[in-house]
Design a protein around this nucleic acid. Structure first.
Length: 135
DNA sequence: GCCAACGTTGGC
DNA sequence: GCCAACGTTGGC
């Protein structure tokens, strides 16, 4: 099982919205690096849900329920989506500031390449952030 | 195939 | 609202 982090602007699609919808397809990815990550996702993979622009924090966990398929919002075969469902809200959101301040997370893509909208997360990083959210 | 110009993203 | 960083486009 792999771990990922996906970003969304909360006023476009928030974690609350996902909780309400129960399931959604993750669309709007128009970047090749992010697309490649989407294609690598397998059923059961876990995702951190990050709010960009507003909030700037990891708010919850989602899970891949359907692997990548043609993005229904475009005819361009370059782009794909995956179906995701909410798993749980973090006990406490972990902010970008905290991630930056945590030395063991200095090599997270969130810190290094903040613009990438779908990022890989290592098990170590995942566990660390979970731990931080429980404090 | 290189690279300048341009557009977009996202933190501040 | 600004601007740095990055990705993409298109002329050569």
């Amino acid at each position: 099982m792999k771990y990922w982090l996906v970003k969304s602007e909360p006023f476009v699609y928030s974690f609350d919205q996902l909780l309400e919808d129960k399931i959604t397809y993750w669309d709007g990815v128009r970047n090749y690096a992010a697309r490649n990550n989407l294609r690598d996702m397998k059923k059961g993979d876990q995702l951190f849900f990050y709010h960009s622009n507003e909030g700037l924090e990891i708010v919850g966990i989602a899970e891949v329920v359907k692997e990548s398929y043609q993005d229904p919002t475009t005819d361009n075969p370059n782009w794909v989506v995956v179906d995701v469902k909410p798993v749980s809200r973090l006990k406490r959101p972990v902010t970008l500031k905290e991630v930056k301040e945590e030395k063991s997370l200095a090599d997270m893509e969130l810190v290094i390449n903040s613009r990438l909208s779908v990022q890989k997360v290592t098990k170590k990083q995942w566990d660390k952030i979970i731990k931080m959210s429980e404090k």
